[in-house]
Structure formats: structure tokens, C-alpha cells
């Protein structure tokens, strides 16, 4: 497995969708490749950070305005 092969299947690896032999090959590559270890760690962190950053709250006053908007439009 090369770095390119590893990066191509990273999501499947993190989502547990790889076959056992594919996981073994990927982990053998990881053991030997510092750059891919860093890539995996930062890719995994990016996924979780993006998810947390996206969990924005709808402001309460916006909910109030939504109710008012719908009352005015549809009664």
C-alpha cells in the first residue's frame, strides 16, 4: 500500500467499512510511514472538528420571528 492508496480509503477505514486484510495492509503502512500517521490523526480530528463547528444553535429570537412570519403568511 502507498500513501495514495491509504488516503483513498481513509473514510472507509474510519467508518469500519474495510475488509480485514485491507485493514492489515493499511496498518502495516501506517507503522512505517510517519507522514500517513500524521495524515490519519489530523484527518480524523478534522472530521470531528467540522462536526462540532457545524452544531450552531438557532437563536431564540429567530424562532419567535419564524412563528410571527408564518402567522402572517398562513394565518
Amino acid at each position: 500500500m502507498t500513501c495514495r492508496d491509504l488516503i483513498d480509503v481513509l473514510d472507509d477505514y474510519l467508518d469500519g467499512r474495510l475488509e480485514r486484510d485491507e485493514v492489515a495492509a493499511l496498518e502495516r503502512h501506517l507503522a512505517e510511514c510517519e507522514a500517513c500517521r500524521a495524515y490519519l490523526a489530523t484527518y480524523r480530528k478534522t472530521r470531528s472538528l467540522g462536526a462540532r463547528a457545524g452544531r450552531v444553535e438557532m437563536p431564540d429570537e429567530m424562532k419567535t420571528r419564524l412563528r410571527r412570519f408564518l402567522r402572517e403568511r398562513v394565518g
Binding site: 495514495r4 492508496d5 495524515y39 490523526a41 472538528l49 462540532r52
Partner: peptide, 29 residues
């Protein structure tokens, strides 16, 4: 990411091995 002909990544080594993942989420957010 870009790759050499042999499938290894290319770019400055310091950037290839940079790992900021140990920084706490609270700090990164």
C-alpha cells in the same frame, strides 16, 4: 494531497509530518 510517481506524498517534509491533532477541541474551537 499530491503524490510522487511511486504513490508517496510530495511536499515539504515538515508539513507532511505536522500533527496538530493532540490540541484539545476546546482550544481549537
Amino acid at each position: 494531497p499530491t503524490f510522487k510517481a511511486d504513490g508517496h506524498r510530495e511536499g515539504p517534509r515538515a508539513l507532511l509530518v505536522a500533527d496538530w491533532s493532540q490540541r484539545p477541541d476546546a482550544e481549537l474551537l
